[in-house]
Design a protein around this nucleic acid. Structure first.
Lengths: 143, 143
DNA sequence: GCATTCTGCTAACTAGAGCAAGCACAATGG
DNA sequence: CCATTGTGCTTGCTCTAGTTAGCAGAATGC
């Protein structure tokens, strides 16, 4: 199924885009016009030769009438869990994801909370409550 | 001829980043090391001179221990509605629904939280976008 | 037959993200 | 007093995202 033998760049996104475009009965030029990107570039994106920025993905999503988030997930810049998952309200998580608190305030607040309910006992080492898993599939190439 | 060489590239993101970094008591170099980006670049991002990609934002989020989504919103590549709409990761709500805290503890915790972010003066935000963003994707694009 | 107009793709180029090296200044402390 | 180490910032460079111009082939019609 992997039609890309050694295409190092993420291909799932390109495949998905081409799929969406074709099922929408749009040509490369049509979509490129709709999305406001050049058609050769779109072609290269679909074949996995270039990695589009979030801005471009946004425009493509608009042209394709799909949610930008779904493209972000495919592009690996958004974790699928953060989109689909619907966690019960968890104080720790809510604190971690809060947009107004500073990092220090978060630490303080979490401290207070855990002074009440205790720290997660099952974890001997201080388990980092990272906001997103981050380490899942982020193939950064160090060069 | 308005000399506007260094156009302010929407420095709200930069301001936010610097704010977060400083309240986390991190120097430019410390955070840049943590996030795996160069320190001059981070400096330029914070001053709004450069516009970081989503990948960089992801790494910065990890280093700052904030959610990547919040940075995306600040950077303008994610709509705030799409974030606030989902799990409703609201600290107040999470505290209220917590099963372990006593009522008194809840009041205390909420007090601390509001000492940080302030009490909700008016309506926080009730605006709901009307467009279909129901699930993750709704590609009804059959012609 | 040959023009036209689609389709997607290649080539060459420009702009800007992101980097390493190094600068100026403040605070330590020997 | 000067050496060291910390802070943020400037310079100059590389690499790639994203562009415009143009190419080869499949369908139309004349």
């Amino acid at each position: 199924m992997s039609k890309n033998p050694l295409n190092d760049l993420g291909s799932s996104l390109g495949d998905y885009l081409r799929e969406q475009r074709q099922s929408a009965k749009l040509s490369l030029r049509q979509l490129s016009e709709l999305a406001g990107v050049s058609n050769p570039y779109l072609s290269q994106i679909e074949r996995g030769l270039k990695r589009p920025s979030a801005e471009i993905l946004q425009q493509l999503a608009k042209g394709l009438e799909v949610s930008a988030e779904s493209l972000y997930v495919k592009a690996g810049i958004l974790d699928e869990d953060t989109v689909t998952e619907r966690p019960r309200s968890d104080v720790r998580r809510a604190i971690a994801e809060d947009g107004q608190l500073t990092a220090r305030q978060k630490a303080t607040l979490l401290d207070v909370y855990e002074s009440f309910v205790g720290t997660p006992a099952a974890t001997p080492k201080t388990r980092r409550s990272t906001t997103s898993k981050a380490g899942t599939k982020t193939p950064q190439k160090e060069k």
